[in-house]
Write a protein that binds this DNA or RNA. Sequence first.
DNA 1: GTCTATATCTCGATAGAC
DNA 2: GTCTATCGAGATATAGAC
Lengths: 214, 214
Amino acid sequence: MHQVVNDLTDTEKRIFDAAIVVFGEAGRRGARMQDIADRAGFNKALVHYYFRSKDRLYEAVLEYIFRTTFAMIGEALCDADDFESMLKTFIGRYLDLIEKNPVLFRFMVREITSGAPVLRQAAHRLAEDRSAFPPRLFLEKCRTASERGEIRAVDPVQTLVTVFGACVYHQFAMPLVTILQPGVEAHRAAFIRKRKLELFDLLYYGLKPRSDEA
Amino acid sequence: MHQVVNDLTDTEKRIFDAAIVVFGEAGRRGARMQDIADRAGFNKALVHYYFRSKDRLYEAVLEYIFRTTFAMIGEALCDADDFESMLKTFIGRYLDLIEKNPVLFRFMVREITSGAPVLRQAAHRLAEDRSAFPPRLFLEKCRTASERGEIRAVDPVQTLVTVFGACVYHQFAMPLVTILQPGVEAHRAAFIRKRKLELFDLLYYGLKPRSDEA
DNA sequence: GTCTATATCTCGATAGAC
DNA sequence: GTCTATCGAGATATAGAC
């Protein structure tokens, strides 16, 4: 249907973009077709004309969001040779990605929190194509690094969860941090810069082979 | 109002419990009074009779959730002397807590993702009482451990975000993991057991003083 | 393709019987 | 205290003019 966003006409695209913002802010149910129309600069009826129903529109948007996000995460992973630099660039790019596209993040969180029915379906399709499904790509890189002795013999899936999660926590925890340190919002860029270093440090030294076996 | 849940009658409690589940699954806006009434086994009108409006009910539930969750996290933190065992028991208990109360988790995620307006207010109150606000408690334990040389001279706030986040992310990532390893749901207990070890290992060795300075 | 006007529906909330 | 019935706001969706 609207899976290939390139095929969209100009009007369609304006509506679609508006829908991304509105759904992102208010959620599936909270979003109003009126708001989407307003933001796009058209009438409500036109939104229905192009996308038939709110549900169809939402699912089109969601599919697009997943596709885009996965593609971006995939890019963050691809071009690196050794595990150390792979990890470092991945962390850097992933954090930047989230920082620049908070809407994507909120979409993912919302969808996953409500059981991720759409993601499950879409992902089964995506998962078949290794290169389009970053988690699988990361798993392979992790296994290779383990075999080469670049990192310890860790469970790749556990490591995947740990690393991907680590890149996301702060976004999620920010309201709490704001309570503890009222100033942080103003120095957000500094916080993110520091976080990148902190994360790489913790993860890499947690994963790399140890001299002392405890 | 309904802040003290012990005061609730039997009927009230059934409604309240139903509300927790329904709001947890569908979110503030997505939840329907009809669904809450159905789940409680009463009529819609009765829900209004006890809780006046959907908003009031939601806020009562939210306040209760925060109170309970913070209390539980606080308990997971309290009784430990050195940082190592503190971290280990904290991870263990926190993961168990989330495992047994997935609803609490979803509430927190949803509320925080939407900017956590209610949390901000409530937390300012809570933050004053150190013992009722686990994040602050953790910060102190972290600082003390740093000073004593039990762990490196890390930024306490960054560490807080890392540790708290680490204990939560698997829940969030589970749909993705299911796609990668279709079997996991069946062996969830084993996954969680493994995760506790994995996390403690990674975090502790990432935080403790190093012999080799890189 | 885009608009105005309106029909249809969902859902929170209330009235009133019991 | 609990129910049935219903109102009314607000939102989705459609009809039909241009």
